[in-house]
Design a protein around this nucleic acid. Structure first.
Lengths: 339, 339
DNA sequence: CTGTTAGCGCATTCAT
DNA sequence: ATGAATGCGCTAACAG
């Protein structure tokens, strides 16, 4: 499939390649006549500029990369990532930018993936959809001064552009909410242990307990991946304790479905025996049975704003504030209804 | 950020650029010595080949494009597309290929988007996640002999490589299933009117009615987009009929959630008053209240196989069969439980 | 306003 | 086994 080049168009139109190039890039200083002529030929020949060649010449890819935590495969099951991806997609689509999903290869070093993306000139900028403590990826991107935006927060540096919720506050509110409902044995099921989101949510939980003079019990605290299966398995541990909790806060909706399943299997009732409250307010929480109280963190908005901030950086308008906080809200549902 | 080129490495290693290039592309005929030396320098300089330049020289992008129906934004809300995307991601990640999500710009002609993708040399191949009757996109790709695989079926040509379920059969089974449960007033809520999936599912439904001597009623048949909202609105119409249905088949889980919501609002009971059965068996169907009987179509597998077939084409092994059928299975849940 | 020239970084003949 | 030269298709600096 031999493709038509700018040369073909130029020849056919009786002008030079650069003139055609100028028409393509809408250069002002070009006569209406030749412009019209060139456009005609382009249409006639069904010509379309080769984006690769263009990128090489421009040193610009018109592509933004999205980096997910651990295996994209697992992550794409989680509504939070799906929704933030959607937000990113909406904004980038508007700017006619492509999205490159970093399909991080399982056992590969993540830094390698980033290096490949950056040094390989595959993307103009990146959006990281997660952050860990001492995140090597963040350090790498920062060291290399590569444009990126974080969905989440960075603890180590304060010059990282990021979009996040106030997860500590949200978690504090959610915990207090359960305490007001009369629950005192509140367990916390986290996601990835070293992720900052989880850390924040855990802090809020702990603080709320403390402010209400409730003893924090280590066995009520467990972590694993953001998967339904993890929620299921972790809850099993909780329900095998001598003193089982009367409420569980789960750091993610998908996990809370797993938790719910296990609770039912063990013949406990939600909310009577155990109240369940969760984060992210995905569609899953809404339609689960019973429906699950969840913190709406505006996942799509997180993605949108992250992408908008990335474009600001790419366009050189880095005037905006570095750290942006997206609002959250408790959406109360049946899983925490007092009877 | 000036990047290191193959030249820099060559100079530092005291060899010519072409030698370095050969090392990179693992050319056999190169001495172990120089090879080792070059690799060392590459590591030392933290060199990484520029993928853009590489692509231009190779005329190959190592990227596959995924085309969604109408606005990517809406579609990314639907679990079916999320899951098939996940399948695609799993396979392409394995091959170290990038995935480009065609962020189809709302009002733009879809063919324009494709042309931009193809003539612009942005992707090596495409996966279409939907098919319509007289699908212009399919025609365009076929006419241009561009490598692509369809998730779905094409009615007009039989030389299109595709992966699909036997949707007519699945729908026939599902409808028969409801009839066996004693329901006779079965409505059908479709998705996009002109999509082949919906057409097939509708055919199966109609056939089952006929084989069971049940009259097909036109007012029991309605269509709209694959969105929760659509399911909600369409169900409203059904429930405003003089003779409301006692069962509804919905062509998609997300839509069925909307349907469920409306049914509840109108104070009907599922399954007692109205049975609900759906397609795609996403996590939503499983956790909905009541849980929804749904046809498991193996969405992730559809994506995986589509991607594998695309790679076969790209690698020139087009030996496989053109049309592949993925199995399906009715997953029975509470929404159709006889009392 | 337009043409000429020289890259962008890599791969690939064709020599040696 | 390696180097030199040329081209992938487009852009941009410099002329005119």
């Amino acid at each position: 499939m031999k493709s038509i080049t700018i040369k073909d168009v130029a020849q056919r139109a009786g002008v030079s390649p650069s003139t055609v190039s100028r028409v393509i890039s809408k250069d002002a200083r070009i006569s209406e006549n030749t412009k019209k002529k060139v456009l005609e030929i382009m249409d006639e020949l069904n010509y379309y500029p080769n984006s690769i060649a263009r990128r090489l010449a421009n040193k610009k890819t018109d592509t933004i990369g999205v980096v997910m935590p651990y295996g994209t495969e697992d992550v794409l099951m989680n509504p939070f990532f799906q929704e933030s991806l959607r937000g990113i997609s909406i904004v980038s689509s508007d700017k006619c930018y492509d999205i490159l999903i970093s399909t991080s290869h399982k056992n590969e070093d993540e830094i390698d993936v980033l290096r490949c993306l950056i040094k390989g000139n595959r993307v103009d900028g990146l959006i990281l959809t997660r952050s860990n403590e001492n995140d090597e990826a963040i350090k790498y991107l920062r060291d290399n001064k590569f444009p990126f935006v974080l969905i989440g927060s960075c603890l180590e540096y304060d010059d990282i552009t990021s979009v996040d919720n106030d997860n500590e506050k949200a978690s504090y509110e959610l915990t207090s909410f359960l305490i007001e409902k009369g629950r005192k044995k509140i367990a916390f099921i986290g996601g990835e242990l070293h992720s900052v989101v989880i850390k924040n949510r855990f802090e809020g939980y702990k603080k709320a307990l403390k402010d209400n003079n409730i003893e924090f019990k280590n066995e009520y605290l467990i972590f694993d991946k953001f998967l339904e299966e993890s929620g299921y398995n972790l809850t099993d541990k909780l329900l095998n304790l001598d003193d089982i909790p009367d409420a569980i806060i789960v750091a993610d909706d998908l996990m809370s479905l797993g938790a719910m399943k296990k609770i039912k299997e063990k013949n406990y009732k939600v909310p009577e025996d155990i109240m369940l409250a969760s984060f992210n307010n995905s569609i899953l929480a809404k339609y689960s049975n019973p429906s699950i109280t969840s913190i709406d963190i505006n996942s799509t908005e997180l993605g949108k704003r992250a992408c908008e901030k990335l474009f600001s950086i790419l366009e050189g308008n880095e005037s905006e504030l570095k750290k942006e906080i997206i609002s959250h809200k408790i959406i109360e549902r049946d899983s925490t209804k007092s009877i």
